[in-house]
Computed example of a mutant assay.
Amino acid sequence: MEIEIRTARADDVGAIAELMYSSGPDMYSYLYKSKALDYLRYEFASGIGFAGHPNVTVALCDGEVVGTGCFYDRDNYERLLKGSIKNMVGFFGYFGVVPVMLRSRHIKSVMRAPKPGELYLSNFGVSDKLRSQGIGTKIIQHKLQEAREKGYNLFGLDVSVANPRGQALYTRLGLQVMKEKHFSNPKAGVNSARKMELALMP
C-alpha cells in the first residue's frame, strides 16, 4: 500500500471532515451541535482557519484522503484563530454564532496556544478501514522530520482520555503525558484531555 503525505488541497476527496471530527467528536458536537460535520467541510473549503486546507496535512491512498492532521505553531495561532472566527460567523451568521462563541470559551481549559518553539497537532484522524497499518505513524514521523529541520524544539498535542488507542500510538512515538486537563463546563459531556509532548532538540 503506497501512501502519499502532503498539504491538503481544496479539491481533495474523501471523508476529510469525518476524519477531523473523529479526533474529538465530543468537543465538536458540543461546539457545533448537529452542524459539526457541515462546519468542518465549510472551513476546509474556505482555506482559512485551523481546519482550512492549507493548514491540513493529509495521507492519501489511491488518490483518496485516508488520514488528516492540522499542525501549527505559536506564530500562526492568532492568524488561524481569526480565520476560524471568520468562518464561524460566515457559516452560522451574526446571531447564530453567539451561542457557538459562548460555548467556545471553554476550549482553553483543555487546549491552549502552542508554547514558543512548539509544533502542535490537532484534528488527527485515520480511516477506520486502514487503522493499524502505520498511516498515523507515517504522518507524524513526516512532520517530526520537518519540525526538526525547521528548528522546532517541541512537539505536542492533546489526546482525549477516551482515546487510549491514540495515546498508545503517541507513546510509541516517544511522547510523554505531561498533565491531565478537565473541561471547564462539567455539564458539556466533553472528556478530559492529556497534554503529551516530545522534546525535539537535545
Results as ranks from 00 to 15, higher is better:
His53Met: 08
Lys129Met: 13
Val110His: 03
Ser104Trp: 03
Ile139Lys: 00
Leu157Cys: 10
Met1Asn: 08
Ala59Thr: 04
Lys138Ala: 14
Gly134Phe: 05
Lys181Cys: 13
Gly83Ala: 09
Arg6Glu: 14
Ile3Ala: 05
Gly166Lys: 00
Pro114His: 06
Gly14Gln: 12
Arg74Ala: 12
Arg105Asn: 10
Val190Leu: 06
Leu175His: 03
Gly63Cys: 10
Arg112Pro: 01
Ala17Asn: 02
Ser46Met: 15
Thr7Gly: 01
Gly47Gln: 04
Ser132Glu: 12
Gly189Ala: 09
Arg148Ile: 13
Tyr170Glu: 04
Asp38Gln: 09
Gly136Asp: 02
Ser29His: 10
Val98Pro: 02
Gly90Val: 14
Gln141Pro: 03
Phe92Val: 14
His106Arg: 15
Phe91Gly: 02
Lys138Trp: 02
Asp128Ser: 06
Glu18Pro: 03
Leu121Arg: 01
Thr171Phe: 09
Glu197Ile: 06
Phe44Lys: 05
Tyr42Ile: 05
Ala8Gln: 01
Ser34Tyr: 08
Gly156Asp: 06
Ala162Leu: 15
Asn153Ile: 07
Val97Asp: 08
Pro186Leu: 15
Gly189Trp: 13
Phe71Ile: 11
Ser29Cys: 14
Glu197Arg: 04
Asn55Ser: 10
Asp11Tyr: 07
Tyr152His: 07
Glu149Asn: 08
Ser104Phe: 14
Glu64Asn: 08
Asp128Gly: 04
Leu169Glu: 02
Asp75Gly: 06
Asn87Val: 15
Glu78Thr: 14
Leu154Val: 06
Ala51His: 01
Gln141Ser: 09
Thr7His: 02
Ala15His: 15
Phe92Tyr: 10
Val190Met: 08
Leu37Glu: 09
Ser104Tyr: 04
Asp38Pro: 11
Lys33Arg: 15
Ile140Ala: 04
Glu78Gln: 12
Asn185Ala: 08
Glu64Trp: 03
His53Gln: 05
Tyr30Trp: 09
Ile16Tyr: 01
Gly125Val: 00
Thr171Asp: 13
Thr137Asn: 10
Ser132Thr: 09
Arg79Ser: 11
Tyr170Pro: 01
Gly90Gln: 04
Ala193Phe: 10
Leu154Thr: 07
Lys33Trp: 11
Tyr28Ile: 04
Ser127His: 02
Ala17Arg: 01
Ala10Gln: 12
Val98Ile: 14
Leu60Pro: 00
Met101Lys: 06
Glu149His: 10
Glu4Cys: 09
Leu169Asp: 00
Lys108Gln: 07
Lys187Ile: 14
Asp62Ile: 14
Asn185Gln: 15
Thr57Asn: 02
Arg172Gln: 12
Ala51Asn: 10
Val58Ile: 12
Ala8Glu: 00
Ser160Phe: 06
Pro114Val: 05
Arg148Trp: 04
Pro25Gln: 10
Asp62Gly: 04
Tyr77Asp: 05
Lys86Phe: 03
Ala193Asp: 01
Ile139Tyr: 00
Ala8Trp: 00
Val100Thr: 06
Asp38Leu: 15
Met196Ile: 12
Arg74Glu: 09
Lys143Asp: 04
Phe44Trp: 05
Ile107Phe: 04
Pro116Gly: 11
Ser109Phe: 04
Phe155Met: 14
Glu180Tyr: 09
Gly63Glu: 07
